[in-house]
Write a protein that binds this DNA or RNA. Sequence first.
DNA 1: TGAATATGAGACATCAATGTCTCAAATGAG
DNA 2: CTCATTTGAGACATTGATGTCTCATATTCA
Lengths: 182, 182
Amino acid sequence: MAVDREDVLRAAAGLLMRRSAATMDEVARAAGISRATLNRQFAGREALVRALEDLGIAECEAAASRAAVDDGPAADAVRRLVRELEPAAGLLAFLYSENQLFEGDEQNEGWARLDARLVALFRRGQEAGEFRIDLSPAWLTEALYGLLVSAAWAIDEGRVARKDFTTNITELLLSGAVRRPQ
Amino acid sequence: MAVDREDVLRAAAGLLMRRSAATMDEVARAAGISRATLNRQFAGREALVRALEDLGIAECEAAASRAAVDDGPAADAVRRLVRELEPAAGLLAFLYSENQLFEGDEQNEGWARLDARLVALFRRGQEAGEFRIDLSPAWLTEALYGLLVSAAWAIDEGRVARKDFTTNITELLLSGAVRRPQ
DNA sequence: TGAATATGAGACATCAATGTCTCAAATGAG
DNA sequence: CTCATTTGAGACATTGATGTCTCATATTCA
């Protein structure tokens, strides 16, 4: 009977990814619980979003660790990272647009940590001569976020195949759309 | 005295790009008019968003026409397109996340037209041998949207320089992050 | 079985945003 | 200048989401 906080968060993420303005009532229904129970678990919408944010950060950092982003060629690290991030892409898509909502007041420091980690990855690639240096690590990081979100939404709306998630993102980010002579 | 509808829309876009949940009161203040006048111009928030949508579509289509996306090498057409889209990027960023809000009920046909135009551009590049064929035109289109939005937000938050807007997007989309031997 | 705990359903007040309305003031045209 | 039109400020009712509360029911554990 005991409600699993984690399950509720995942259900909420699945719904909010599609409709970020969903009602607390809709969230509760999506999680298969009552609104009362939802409010017992999370004291208000803000608490729910904050919990989702913490979950998203935790998943991204876990993905970065599993991908061992500091090891080996940076390009391979990016590929591993995107592959590991796939399960969190939907949640990330919600949080990415939600963050625009928050005033400049308080930016969860977890995002700063994650940002720094990704920036370091791209910088490492540049210093190793793998990545071009005319695109800043900050931009490459933002672009990665953007592609993750685009891919998540496009898949959700059936415009691209789910199985192509990783290759779509990594191939575009690393190699671009232009055809290369092999 | 007569309020310029276009000016109001631009002011609204400028605010809503940052805070998509801004109040009608905030929108009015951003436009330098009263809430009453705002409501006289646009009968409700939905009408305002719809007008912004129409404006966004019109600007994108105008940009596509100015860029002559059907002429010459596809890669050059993409570069021209992104350059022409820059002034509309903020509005596009708002609409991109806002569209997630709307139920699957009604998708403005203008977006479908624009989508088709971009898809055709990427397909043309593939058929001409310019673009690789293992990334679908649909994905390339979505990726372009995502990069436009990412760049707009990153610039707005001061993480990347505004002057790099076009090159950041086109270089990443076309050539990718990997350094190429010249 | 019996007690303790958790949940669901619904009622309820609250709050914020919205849309409408009125009236005075400002603007612009003739 | 005078009149018609437009705007701003504010009051007002409405609406929808939210958070809280109660009580009956269901589940778990001793």
